[in-house]
Design a protein around this nucleic acid. Structure first.
Lengths: 354, 354
DNA sequence: CTGAAAGCGCTTACAG
DNA sequence: CTGAAAGCGCTTACAG
C-alpha cells in the first residue's frame, strides 16, 4: 500500500505538506504542488479513508436509516436512496443504507460504533423514538419526513396539503363529485403514527369538505391485495363513487385490478388517481396510472444537503416541503353520467348538489 | 467519548487486556473479565470501529456492488440486499450498498479508499470488467451470479437450467404444447452479456427442443410496457400459443395486461408463468402471477458467507447453484382446447403431435 | 494470564 | 509556505 509517507519522500517534502495539499487546508507553492502531484501520480497514491477518519474524527460517512422491517423497500425508496447517495458523493461523503428498526434500538447500537458522522432519517413517525437516540448520541441528522414536534429539527418532506389539494381539484374540475380516498391503515402498528398516512388523510378530509364533497375514506394496507379488497368494500358501500384517490402505490395497483374485475371500465366508469407513486410503479397497471409523482429525487438530495450543511457548520438549510406533482396517465377521465339511485338517502341529497 | 483507556484504567488493567477480552483473542481470568465487563458497563463503553479498522487493517465492512444505472433496484434486489446484510451482521460485519457502474471505473475509485474488506458482486456479466479491477486491488470478492470463465472464482447463482426445466415440465404436464418465451433483449447494451438473460434463453431453447416443442422466443426489455408490446407481437405471430414464460418480472406484469387487453382470459385462454419473480411483484397482477420464485434470500446469504469465509481464511464455500422454485399463483391452468387453424403450416403439423 | 510499547496512516496545532 | 511531532483509539507481536 502506498502511503502518504511514500509520496512525501518521493516529492522531498513532509507528510504534513502532502496532507495540506490534499485537503486544501493550507497554501502550497506551485512548485511543491507539482512535485507532490507528480509523486502521487507515479505511485498511484490513494488516501486511506480509515486513517483520515481516525485522525480527523470525521468518517465522512452518512447513514440513511431505513426501517426495512416496517416498510417495504421498493421503487420509491430506491429513488430516495440513489439521489441521496449522489448528493453525498458530490460533497465527498459516502452514503450507506442502514436497514434498522423503527424503534431506535438497532440505531443506537450502530451509532455507538462511531462509523458515521450523521444520519438521514427515512419514514419518520409523528413521535419518532429514533430522535431521542440520535440526540443522546449527539449525532447530527436530517429527516426526510417530519415529527409533530419539530422544534428546529432539520427536515424536508412532501407537501401533503398541496398534493392532496391539487389532486382533488384536478378531479373536481373534471366534474367528479363523488370521490373516495383509499387511505392507509392507521390501525396497523407499523404505520400507526406514520407521518404521510396521517397527514394525507387529514388533508383529504379537510380539502374534500372545503369542496363540499362527501368525505369517504376507507383504510387500506400497503399491498396490492389490500387494494383489491378495499375496492370491493368501496363498491359495496359507495357505488356512486366516480373517482378514487389511493394513498399507497401498491394498493393503487390493486384498486385498478379490483375495479376492472368488478366490471368497471377505468377510467370510463371510474377514475383512479394514485396520490404518491413513481413512474415505474405507475406503468405496472393497464391502463397506466395517473398519479401525483412522489418527489423522491428532490427530497433525497435536499435531505442529504441539509445534513451535510450541519456537518460542515454551514448555514442550515431551511425546512422544505415539496408537493407531488400531477403526472398524467390513463386512469383519470371525466366522470360517467350519474345513474339514478335506488333510494334517495343522504348521499343522494349530496349528489343533487353537483 | 469513552475509550478503551478509560475502561482499562477503571478496571485496573492494561488496554491490551481489554482488547484481548473484547476480541476473545487471548484468555483472560474470570476475575479480570468481571472487572473489565463491569467497567465497560458502568462507562457505557463502545468500541470505536474506525480505530479498530486502522490498527487491525480490517474494516469489517463489505460492499455490495450494484450497478444501479444499468439495473433497476426493485423488490428482488431488496431481497438480496437485506438477506446479505443480515448474514453479514451475524458475523460482525457491516454490509453496505454501493451503487456503482457496470464497467468497474467507480468501483476502482471506491476500492482505492480502503474502506472495505471485500465485495459482493451483483448482476454479474459473462465477461465482467469489474473482476479485473477487484483482482488488481487484491480485494476479496464473491459473485452472486457468475462469469463464463470461472477459474476458481467464489460464486453462487441461480440454477437456471433446473429452473427452466421445472417450469417447462410443469406446463408440459398440464398439457401445454404451444409455449413461448418472452425473453430478455440481448441487443440492449445494458444487458448485452447479462448472465441470467443469456443463460435462461439458452436453457429454454435446449429444454423446449428436448420436449419436442416449437421454440418460440421473443426479445423483450425489462419493463411492463415492453411486456405489453411483446405480447402484441406474440399474439400476432404465434396465436396458437397457450402458455407464455416470461423472464423479467416487470415484463410479466405487462404480459398479463397485454393478454387481457387482447381479450384473452388468463389463465383460461392463455397461461402465464414468470420465470424469476418475488411474491411482492407477483401479487401486483390480477390474477396473481404463478412464478418460479427467485431464491434471493438464499443467494444473498450464501454469497455473503462465501465472501466472509475468504476474509476469515476459512475453508472456501463451494460454488452453489440454487433453482427458483415453482410458487403457485393463478395464471397457469390447463390449456384451452386447440382451435382449428386457418392454414395447416409447420406449426399446425407440430400441433398435431400434442 | 497480563503489560509496555510500537504501530496502523493520517490530521493538526505549534513553531519557524 | 513548510516541517517535526503529538495524537486519533485501537491491535498485536514481544516479553515476562
Amino acid at each position: 500500500m502506498v502511503t502518504m509517507r511514500d509520496v512525501a519522500q518521493r516529492a522531498g517534502v513532509s507528510i504534513a505538506t502532502v496532507s495540506f495539499l490534499l485537503n486544501d487546508t493550507k497554501p502550497v507553492t506551485a512548485a511543491t504542488r507539482a512535485r507532490i502531484e507528480q509523486a502521487m501520480l507515479e505511485l498511484g497514491y490513494r488516501r486511506n479513508v480509515v486513517a483520515r477518519a481516525l485522525a480527523s474524527k470525521r468518517t465522512r460517512i452518512i447513514a440513511m436509516a431505513y426501517p426495512a422491517l416496517e416498510h417495504r423497500f421498493g421503487m420509491s425508496t430506491a429513488e430516495f436512496f440513489t439521489s441521496a447517495a449522489e448528493a453525498a458523493r458530490k460533497d465527498d461523503y459516502h452514503l450507506v443504507l442502514w436497514p434498522v428498526g423503527n424503534d431506535g434500538v438497532e440505531l443506537r447500537e450502530l451509532l455507538g460504533q462511531g462509523l458515521v458522522d450523521g444520519v438521514v432519517l427515512m419514514e419518520v413517525q409523528l413521535d419518532d423514538p429514533r430522535i431521542a437516540v440520535l440526540r443522546q448520541a449527539a449525532t447530527p441528522f436530517a429527516m426526510i419526513g417530519r415529527t409533530t414536534e419539530l422544534d428546529g429539527l432539520s427536515h424536508v418532506d412532501i407537501d401533503f396539503d398541496t398534493t392532496v389539494e391539487d389532486a382533488v381539484r384536478h378531479l373536481y374540475e373534471l366534474g367528479h363529485r363523488e370521490l373516495a380516498l383509499i387511505s392507509g391503515d392507521l390501525d396497523d402498528p407499523r404505520f400507526h403514527a406514520y407521518g404521510p398516512w396521517v397527514r394525507v388523510e387529514e388533508a383529504y378530509r379537510r380539502v374534500a369538505a372545503s369542496y363540499g364533497l362527501p368525505v369517504v375514506v376507507l383504510p387500506c394496507s400497503d399491498t396490492t391485495q389490500a387494494g383489491k379488497a378495499a375496492t370491493e368494500r368501496l363498491l359495496d358501500r359507495h357505488p356512486e363513487t366516480t373517482a378514487v384517490l389511493v394513498l399507497n402505490e401498491y394498493a393503487a395497483l390493486g384498486v385498478v385490478s379490483g375495479l376492472k374485475r368488478a366490471g368497471h371500465d377505468v377510467p370510463g366508469n371510474t377514475s383512479v388517481l394514485a396520490l404518491l407513486s413513481v413512474p415505474e410503479t405507475a406503468a405496472m397497471t393497464d391502463p397506466e396510472l395517473t398519479m401525483m409523482r412522489t418527489p423522491g429525487p428532490e427530497l433525497g438530495q435536499l435531505g442529504t444537503e441539509a445534513l451535510i450543511r450541519q456537518l460542515e457548520g454551514a448555514d442550515p438549510l431551511p425546512p422544505q416541503l415539496v408537493p407531488a406533482k400531477l403526472s398524467p396517465g390513463a386512469t383519470v377521465a371525466t366522470p360517467r353520467a350519474p345513474r339514478p339511485k335506488a333510494g334517495a338517502g343522504r348521499r343522494g341529497a349530496r349528489k343533487a348538489r353537483s
